[in-house]
Every structure is written in C-alpha cells, then in structure tokens.
C-alpha cells in the first residue's frame, strides 16, 4: 500500500467534468487539502473525514456517510437495479456508454445516487445521497428518477425525506433528458408537500447547476456543511462572464448563510444530532 497517493483538489464547474475527479484519499496516510497536515488515514476516517487540525471537511463517501448518520443497520437500499442508458448515443472525447462502464467498474456503483429508507435516532426517513465521484455527481435520468422516488416513498410511508447533495449539475451526456430531471424532481417535491412531513436538504461540497436549481434548494430546512461550494453557476463561468476575480469565500456556505439562502451550517460531528433534533420537532 502506498503511503501517499495523488489527491487532486476538487475543481468545480457549473456542469460536471468530463472525467470524474476522485477526491478519495488512498494510502495509509493522507494529507489535508487545506492545511497540508499529514493525517493517519484511520484517524481521519474516525473523524468523519474532517481534518483534526484545521476542521476542513474532506469528501465523505456516500455509503460511509449513510452508515454513520443513520441508526446502525437501519438502512435498506432501494432502486439499486436502476441503470443508466444512452438515449442520445452521446460521444465526446469518449463514448458515454464506455464512460459509464469504466466508472461503474471503478466505483462499483451503477450511477451517482444511493437511496433507501432508514432511521435517524429512531425517526424513519426516506433518504438519498449523491456519489460525487461518479461523473461529478451529475444528474441524468437515473439520479432524477431515484430522487423523485425518495419523495414518493416518503409520501407513501408518511415519513421525512433527507437528501445529501453533492453534484456539479445536470449530466450533459444525457442532454435534454437531464434538464427535464429538474422539473421531475421538483414536481415530486410539490406532491410530497401536500403531506405534513419535512424535507431536509443537506448541501455538501459542491452543489451547483441543475441540482442546486431544483430539489436541493427546495428543502423545508436547508443545511450545509462548512465551506461547501454552493451556487447556480460555477465560479469559472461567472468569472468569464463578468471578467472579474470573485471575492474570497464567494458561493461558500458561510456566504450563503450571510445572504439568507440557507438555514444553518452544521459541522459534520454535529450533523446526526442536528438531523435527529429537527426530525424530533417536525418528523
């Protein structure tokens, strides 16, 4: 096992990157993305992937997140069998079909979203979480369908809904179908809201584009992890448009809280308790 492995910082555009950029830190030791401290990997994992020195929240894999935030053994996964197709026969520098195949082989996930039903401090929740390393967490038909079903399931079970978002936006390779997932997921929320259960949206680093501009920003309560990049357009697109450097901290969680766009910023160590608390009040 390597002591260190190359670990590119996550660059975000409005739209997903052509190649997934894994932020997983492999090897026995990891280096903090912010303070460059060397951290024993096991210690980092025990600390919810938060740097014990500078509190930087590193990417936390979807399955590990769900396992840690939900009550032990409470998670039952749904819709595992949904698999992406290639409705446009899309090809850029690589065929979309091949990209799907190789990403699936690398990650063992069929697409960028895991969903199911579980419990948090005893409260039943219909829950979903993005797999960001799957093509930048981009939303195509499968992600859209799974998200819609999270709300439909919550509505049926009369339980709360929670979605953890981390996505560059719509999946360009599925063209107009990916755009339409924005309408589909938002419509599913409208229907869910005829009931009385809450939807808690948790915004992770990063949440942009068509995912930010649909179900992610429709939470009854919207939480964010510290310093997550959240917005509609990616910083690069904005810089190119206005031909100015963006101010420090622009589109970060703290900036959004200041501008009244989210309810609270929650440190990962407090996330489970906070979710439990809100569910206790509303769920």
């Amino acid at each position: 096992m390597a002591w260190f492995s190359k670990k590119p910082r996550i660059a975000v555009d409005t739209e997903p990157q052509a190649e997934p950029r894994p932020s997983r830190m492999e090897g026995l030791w990891a280096k903090c993305e912010t303070c460059d401290e060397i951290i024993y990997r096991q210690e980092l994992e025990k600390n919810w992937m938060v740097c014990p020195h500078c509190e930087h929240h590193h990417y936390w894999a979807a399955r590990a997140r769900l396992a840690a935030l939900l009550d032990p053994d409470s998670f039952e996964e749904f819709d595992k069998e949904l698999e992406p197709q290639d409705p446009l026969g899309f090809s850029d520098t690589k065929k979309y079909k091949d990209r799907l195949k190789s990403t699936r082989k690398n990650l063992g996930e069929p697409d960028a979203f895991i969903s199911g039903v579980g419990r948090i401090q005893g409260h039943q929740v219909s829950v979903g979480c993005f797999v960001f390393e799957f093509m930048g967490g981009s939303m195509g038909s499968v992600v859209g369908e799974k998200v819609a079903r999270v709300f439909e399931r919550a509505h049926e079970l009369k339980c709360s809904a929670i979605v953890f978002s981390a996505s560059g936006g719509a999946r360009m390779q599925e063209g107009i179908f990916s755009l339409m997932q924005m309408a589909k997921t938002s419509a599913a929320i409208a229907r869910f809201r005829t009931g009385t259960r809450p939807y808690i949206s948790v915004l992770l680093n990063p949440t942009t584009g068509g995912v930010a501009a649909s179900f992610s920003w429709l939470g009854d309560v919207i939480l964010a992890e510290p310093k997550a990049l959240i917005g509609f357009a990616g910083p690069r697109v904005i810089e190119q448009t206005i031909r100015q450097k963006l101010p420090e901290g622009f589109q970060r969680s703290e900036f959004l809280l200041d501008h009244g766009m989210i309810d609270a910023i929650i440190h990962r160590k407090d996330l489970r308790a906070k979710l439990g608390q809100i569910l206790g009040l509303l769920g």
Partner: peptide, 15 residues
C-alpha cells in the same frame, strides 16, 4: 451567471 444573481439566490428562484 453574475455575482448579484448568486447573492440573491438564482438557483433557489429557479427551483
């Protein structure tokens, strides 16, 4: 895609 648009919640408005 501009600074003010982001500050005032472009994504939220669309959603």
């Amino acid at each position: 895609p501009g600074i003010g648009a982001e500050e005032r919640g472009q994504a939220e408005a669309i959603a």
